[in-house]
Write a protein that binds this DNA or RNA. Structure first.
Length: 557
RNA sequence: AGACCCAUGGUGUAAUGGUAACACUACGGUUUUUGGUAUCGUCAUUCUAGGUUCGAGUCCUAGUGGGUCUACCA
């Protein structure tokens, strides 16, 4: 038996080595630390997958921690949405729901410790002055004139800051690291600032708030996080992260950075997404075209498809733009297995079967999901007057590569009969108002003895039995794979004007009256659809999740 | 400009010093009562130049290219 070695990503290798060395007694503990100031999007799913997924794989656990150190931007509403999104993705944090704001007292005490060790000082410089002191990376910075304050004075002033004795912006607490470091984050970074604002959880209890660098790593330590997995843009913070662990002598969590995931035709900048929402280009943060988790959910994406996508795209440190086609492929793959098949006609033209007995109705029995051996069946009404897609008929036969209806052509109706097209009727403007055909009586689906072998198969609905629905045809939001990468062009110029096409009246087979929220359908030959949040039994609304692959359409482009 | 990170088909990820693999895309077949699915095939002198080695995508050096950082945001 040969040992098949599973290939590991670089973080799994680190974890396995730690496990081999018995580090932290073999404990794996990660965290996902969103700031509750916006909605989660496709990019966040990677970080969620990494932190939750890796802990799960190695028998560890993951904390959900809200990094709420900035009262200006954070709101409880976001907390609730973030929890909903993560739960929907299928990850559990049980009772491990934490808030950095829970540690405000601990963090304050840590700061006092640093002051006592003469490693922190209160600085009266303005933000501009501090920036000036830090200078540029290529030249050493200048020391703050306040850096020489005594420990006692610093202690007193910091307490004063805490007690609200000073105005916003008048003082900050800084740590004494290294003003000559080429790493700007090491140039005596600010760790506390005054903000007399109401915090979503601590209210007015505090008026000083720790900065990211003095909150994140320390929270990791407090929670005994073993592996703090974050995206590459934090790599320059790591020396500081480790500096605090060393100086504070706290639990040595380890920060490991990976490349964030970018997806073509999507953007993830909060600010840029906000412009779409505010500009009315989309219908809110959960518009089915948005890359937000709530948008993807409304669009009909499944949690599994998103998790599988994260897994399929791997983990590394190089910049990447993953083609949406991969996401769509994974999605289609899942939906193909699970979706209920139905007949829906989006752009109808009546089809009259001239030799079909007047008033006759037959019920065609069809599998709901042909991919499933034991699929239950449904009944599709068939009659002499049907609706078919306008695109499925051509008055002039375009040649032998064409498989659909044209005068003289045979074509199979899925779950129906084989037809021979005889012609069409047009109105005064030349628009086709009706297509005519005859049917082969012995060609019924399932008991076809006609011997006729048509090349094409089409879907239909019986006109008198059809139910109406609104159908939203969503397409990608941008016409360019990387809309924000163009120096001279605003990304809004690439907003796809055809990203939504609303079909007010589509015609569905009766089976769809029972469509429920979260149901996944394949409209045969058209694509995958799911009921919109606003869909009701009285007024059905379907969103297109993704179209079917269509070689024919592609060929004819 | 300095420091840091990165460099494998169109895209993404593998190959853990032993002759480039997998998935997606694209293109071309076969099958098919969804132009879907399934299935078969085609698409790379591993950024460049030196070096170490019997042997280098992998290790070393230099170069080139791309990214990141220079917030009282996270």
């Amino acid at each position: 038996m040969s040992e098949h070695k599973e290939s590991l990503n670089f973080i799994e290798e680190i974890i396995e080595e730690d496990l081999r060395n018995g580090k932290h007694d073999g404990r794996i503990h990660t965290r996902f630390p969103p700031e509750p100031n916006g909605y989660l999007h496709i990019g966040h799913t990677k970080a969620i997958w990494v932190n939750f997924g890796l802990a799960e794989k190695y028998g560890g656990v993951t904390n959900l921690r809200f990094d709420d150190t900035n009262p200006t931007t954070e709101e409880t509403e976001y907390v609730d949405n973030i929890k909903k999104d993560i739960a929907w993705l299928g990850y559990k944090w049980d009772e491990r729901e934490y808030y950095t704001s829970d540690y405000f007292q601990t963090l304050y005490d840590y700061a006092v410790t640093l002051i006592k060790k003469d490693l922190a000082f209160v600085d009266d410089s303005t933000a501009d002055e501090i920036a000036e002191q830090k200078g540029v990376p290529s030249k050493p910075g200048k020391e703050s004139p306040y850096k020489t304050r005594s420990i006692e004075e610093n202690l007193k002033l910091f307490e004063g800051m805490k007690n609200g004795e000073f105005e916003d912006g008048s003082k900050v607490l800084r740590v004494k690291v290294d003003m000559t470091s080429p790493n700007m984050h090491m140039r005596d970074p600010v760790i506390y600032r005054i903000k007399k604002e109401t915090h979503h959880r601590t209210g007015d209890e505090w008026c000083i708030y720790p900065m990211y660098d003095f909150a994140h790593g320390q929270s990791d330590s407090v929670e005994k996080i073993t592996h703090s997995l974050c995206s590459l843009e934090f790599i320059h913070h790591r020396p500081l992260y480790n500096w605090f662990i060393e100086k504070l002598e706290i639990f040595p969590s380890r920060q490991i950075e990976f490349a964030r995931m970018n997806v073509s035709y999507m953007i993830t900048s909060k600010r840029k997404l906000l412009r779409l929402v505010e500009g009315g280009m989309v219908d809110g943060w959960n518009d089915p075209r948005m890359p937000t988790i709530s948008g993807l959910r409304r669009r009909g994406y499944t949690p599994k498809s998103i998790r599988d996508f994260c897994a399929a795209t791997g983990l590394a440190k190089r910049d990447n733009v993953i083609e949406v086609e991969l996401l769509e492929s994974i999605l289609r793959n899942e939906l193909n297995q699970d979706a209920q098949r139905v007949h829906v006609v989006l752009n109808p033209v009546p089809l009259v079967i001239t030799n079909y007995p007047e008033g006759k109705v037959e019920m065609m029995v069809a599998k709901i999901n042909p991919m499933d051996e034991d699929s239950p069946t449904r009944e599709i009404p068939f009659s002499g007057r049907l609706l078919i897609e306008r695109d499925d008929f051509m008055e002039e036969d375009p040649g032998k590569k064409y498989y659909r209806m044209a005068p003289g052509r045979n074509v199979r109706l899925k779950n129906g009969y084989i037809l021979n097209c005889t012609g069409c009727t047009k109105d005064a403007d030349g628009n086709i108002t009706e297509v005519q055909a005859t049917y082969y009586e012995d060609s019924r689906s399932g008991s076809d003895t006609s011997g006729v072998k048509p090349k094409g198969t089409m879907h239909y609905v019986s006109e008198q039995h059809a139910i109406e629905a609104q159908v939203n045809l969503y397409d990608r939001l941008f016409t360019d794979p990387t809309p924000t990468s163009h120096e001279n062009k605003d990304y809004l110029e690439f907003v796809n004007p055809d990203s939504l096409k609303v079909i007010e009246k589509a015609y569905c087979e009766p089976y769809l009256v029972n469509a429920k929220q979260d149901d996944k359908f394949q409209f045969i030959r058209l694509g995958y659809f799911t009921p919109d949040y606003d869909s009701t039994a009285e007024r059905l609304i379907f969103n297109r999740t993704v179209s079917l692959k269509d070689k024919w359409k592609k060929k004819n482009k």
